[in-house]
Design a binder for these strands. Structure first.
Lengths: 222, 222
DNA sequence: GTCTATAAATAGATAGAC
DNA sequence: GTCTATCTATTTATAGAC
């Protein structure tokens, strides 16, 4: 509205202040949704956790649902970046790539207590909202593609390059990882530090030694 | 209170009627919690889905939370039974035990649409209620022990008996299974029918061919 | 035993002050 | 841009009729 150039030496422009508020609210929302669940978290709790009022929340977001959806798409970007980190960690390391992969995954999963909870909430929300299901599936495809690069590198090192499609391996490795993380959160004694690395070893050794993938009956032998 | 023997030719005794009502309410609760989530489901919806009123629900259960907890302990029993079924299916079948295992798991998971949703809800609830976390962990230990029998049988067939602790294998196989089921529910095209069987093959072949399990640094060499 | 009616608390969302 | 006050709907749980 004010077209005059005010030379006010403000530290933050209005746009910057708003962006900061949005970020704080999103962080608080991630924590709160993880700890209380989507339906269990109230907008009041979220605003309070961010240090703002309900009004500020509604001034920056359409409401509770929009907040949650923004976390879903934002989390997708974070996952792709994490995929790149895994790739870098595995490529750069001089050690056994499977060991590097296993340790990196276990470390990152132990670092963020809320991540597994929030992902479970996102999955449930996506399963119950068809439109969101497709969006989350697309987001996960992206992050899995980032993982495929790692898989190919690892497969090459164990001497099974091209023996098996990388997407399938990435899917299985990712499922194994997420399943073990959830089990570890529920009962840490049942999933020792080293089990993820060992499981990854078994998987890749198995792929390297598996005979020609004989179909259940037969599929396309091309 | 009425000590007189009333010879009323009722088809259901009071106790039987109450037991039936409880069962119908529990079934409805399982469906409703799976579809709407624990916090998202109202007692009114549950009672309605069971064909009763709110009053009947409160007459049979302490409330929403007690209903959910009964589902958790009831589900534990069901899991142990299912473990026995897996064992029977794998032992009885003349075919490759890994194929039998993979197919059995995929079939049972595709059969019940709500099961994976309800299990995710139970996990989240357990993660947020320490007392329930221990109870769910104990229940899962039981069902995993049932799986260990299957694992030993399969390991024996691939010639890796005793090479590796069965509990660890059961944990990894279970994690892989659950992770793939969730991924399949989210994006069926990313997890073809045969992938679970193939993943199980990779796992067991890997175990059979893995060298002496070299520790990350070293642990107890006993 | 089950139902209807209702109490008491809390939810998401909005309006207007500043 | 953010806060306070409030509206309306829905929630869990209970009380009393039948």
């Amino acid at each position: 509205m004010d077209s005059e150039s005010d030379g006010k030496p403000k530290r933050l422009t209005r746009a910057e202040a708003k962006a900061r508020t949005r970020r704080l609210l999103l962080d608080a929302a991630a924590r709160t949704f993880a700890r209380k669940g989507y339906a269990g978290a109230s907008v009041e709790e979220i605003a309070e956790a961010a240090g703002y009022s309900i009004g500020a929340l509604y001034s920056n977001f359409g409401g509770k649902e929009e907040l949650f959806i923004e976390l879903m798409v934002g989390g997708a970007k974070a996952r792709v970046e994490r995929g790149g980190q895994v790739f870098a960690a595995v490529e750069a390391g001089t050690e056994d790539p499977v060991t590097a992969l296993g340790r990196f995954l276990m470390e990152t999963s132990d670092k963020d207590d809320d991540l597994a909870l929030l992902q479970a909430e996102l999955w449930l929300y996506a399963m119950r909202n068809p439109g969101m299901r497709d969006r989350l599936a697309a987001a996960q495809r992206e992050s899995r593609e980032a993982l495929e690069g790692v898989m190919e590198a690892v497969l090459a090192r164990v001497g099974a390059s091209g023996a098996v499609p990388a997407p399938a391996v990435a899917t299985v490795a990712s499922a194994m990882f997420q399943g073990l993380v959830r089990q570890r959160r529920l009962d840490p004694s049942s999933v020792p530090d080293d089990l993820l690395r060992q499981a990854m070893r078994w998987l890749f050794i198995g792929i390297a030694n598996a005979p020609e993938t004989p179909g259940p009956s037969e599929e396309d032998p091309s």
